[in-house]
Design a protein around this nucleic acid. Structure first.
Lengths: 131, 131
DNA sequence: GCAATTGATGTAATAACATTACATTTACAT
DNA sequence: ATGTAAATGTAATGTTATTACATCAATTGC
């Protein structure tokens, strides 16, 4: 999945997120794209929905914000569950993947006959630089 | 931590959550407490803040809702990181604790000199009964 | 007792986040 | 070229959460 096959709006939103050094809310993205013709939240949310579907973007549930995937070329769906550290001071987000955690969560779900959809793992705190 | 030392509003909110079989939004709680004199969201949010602080209630970040702790007597803070399965069909929430997952997350944070605040682990999907 | 402080409450207004509904346009396979 | 699916534009509304300010209640120190 490259950036080429994205539509205009999807490309614009992905671009904004890619160049940001911290997560952005949908409304912040909207403001950044006003000059590109964006007028309404839905334009952002629709693009985000697609980008999430493509695995190019992640939604951080605990802060209602979005970040570009750390390795968009492969599409993050190939990497299983994604976990994040989120610095509450500077906004730095680090994405990581841990197969042990994933296995434990899968095992728990399986044991309960729970059919897993999307899993959220987010650690909020303070990064090394801000400590 | 028993229910005794809660204030009136805290007690009312905790009661509503305790008797619910699924997570509730702050505004749903508000509606359920109108007859008890609740008039504004802030009355709910303030009570929830305290209940969260006491470890009597959990916030489910991925669905903007709240549940009573599964073992409120001990205070959930004693149990380390709390993880949840959340059935998107019936709302059933199961709370669990996994020390292996916790250790992995702590190790990752430590390795990055990331100072951990609150950690969110939520699996959304379909429970056995709804499958 | 009674001021002083702190924690809890009441109320209104507003901010922040997200979706529904409906009309129109674009992309593209047949 | 035309039918269909996907994407877009726009307005309105719904949902979640906070700010600001006034009042009340409980506790402490004197």
């Amino acid at each position: 999945m490259t950036t080429q096959q994205l539509t205009k709006n999807q490309g614009l939103v992905f671009d904004v997120l890619s160049h940001s050094d911290s997560p952005l809310s949908a409304y912040t993205i909207l403001d950044k794209l006003r000059d590109n013709g964006f007028r309404a939240p839905l334009q952002v949310y629709r693009a985000l929905d697609k980008l999430l579907e493509f695995g190019l973007v992640h939604r951080l549930e605990s802060i209602n914000a979005f970040v570009a995937c750390a390795h968009p070329h492969e599409g993050c769906h190939n990497h299983g569950i994604t976990a994040f550290t989120i610095c509450e001071t500077c906004g730095q987000v680090t994405e990581f993947h841990d197969h042990v955690i994933e296995d434990r969560l899968k095992a728990f779900a399986k044991g309960r006959n729970f059919k897993t959809g999307k899993t959220t793992i987010e650690i909020r705190g303070t990064c090394a630089g801000c400590a």
